[in-house]
Amino acid sequence: MDRRTDLLTGRPASEDDRPPERADAARNRAKVLRAAAGLFATRDPRTVTMDDIARAAGVGRGTLYRRYPDTGSIAVALLDEHERDLQERLLRGEPPLGPGAPPGERLAAFYAAMVALLEAHGHLLLGAESGSSRFTTGAYGFWRAHLRALLVAGDVPDPDAMTDALLAPLSAEVYAHQRERGLSPERIAAALAELTRRTLPGATPEA
C-alpha cells in the first residue's frame, strides 16, 4: 500500500510499522512541532522555512530533515489530530455529518465542518498546502473518497471529475482570500450549501 493512501486514518500507511521512538527523538520531535506551530500562528505559513523552524526549535538541520522533508509535512503532522477527529465523525458520527442522511445533506454538513476546520486551523492548512503536499496527504485522499461516495450515491455524472472540483473551494488559500475580502464563515458555508443544492438538486441541505 502506498504510504500516502491510508484513507481511514489520514496517516502514512507505514507509520505503525516504525520501530519505537527513542526518547531523545521524541523530545526533538516535540520541540520541532511546538516551534513550527508558533511560527505558523504568527506569520504567513507560506513564508516559514525549514531553517526558521530549526532555529526556533534549537535543533540542527539534519535532525529536522531526518523526520520532515519540508514545512508542508510539519504542518500536516500538526493537523493530524484535528483531521482524524473529523474523519472519525464522518465514519461513525451522527447524521447528517455521519452515515444515515441523504447524500446532499451529508455533503452540506461536510462543507460546514470543513469551514469550521479552516476557521480554527487555517494557518496550518495553509502551511500544509505548500508544494504538492495538499494532494498527497492521507487526509486529502480521505476527503476525496468521501465526496466521491456521496456523488455516486446521488447519481451525479462523472464523479471522478467532479470530486476535485467540489474540493477546490476548501483550499486554505481560497478560504484565506475570502476571509481577507470580509466574507464571514457563515456566508462561505451558505455559499457551499448552495453549491451542494445545485450539485444534488434533490437535496435540501442547510448551511
Rank of each mutant, 00 (worst) to 15 (best):
D2L: 10
R4G: 15
T5D: 14
L7Q: 11
L8S: 05
R11G: 00
D16W: 00
D17W: 00
P20F: 03
P20N: 01
E21N: 05
A25C: 03
N28F: 13
R29Q: 09
K31F: 01
R34G: 07
A35I: 04
A37M: 12
A37K: 15
L39E: 00
L39D: 01
P45I: 08
T47W: 02
V48E: 07
M50F: 03
D52E: 05
A56Y: 12
G60A: 01
R61Q: 07
L64D: 15
Y65F: 09
R66V: 10
R66P: 09
R67K: 07
Y68D: 03
P69M: 06
V76N: 14
E81A: 15
H82P: 09
H82W: 05
D85A: 10
L86G: 03
Q87E: 06
E88T: 14
L91F: 13
G93F: 03
G93C: 07
P96H: 04
L97E: 03
P99N: 10
P99G: 11
G100N: 06
P102K: 05
P103K: 09
G104D: 05
E105K: 06
A108H: 02
A113G: 04
M114K: 12
M114T: 09
L117R: 15
L118K: 08
G122W: 15
G122Y: 11
H123F: 13
L125Y: 08
F135A: 14
T136R: 15
R144H: 08
H146T: 10
L150V: 09
L151K: 01
D155V: 04
V156S: 09
D158R: 13
P159R: 12
A165E: 12
E173R: 15
E173T: 07
Y175H: 15
Y175P: 10
Y175I: 08
Q178K: 15
Q178V: 06
Q178S: 12
Q178A: 15
R179I: 13
R181C: 14
G182Q: 06
S184V: 02
E186G: 10
I188K: 04
A189V: 00
L192Q: 11
A193E: 04
L195S: 07
R198N: 06
P201R: 09
G202M: 06
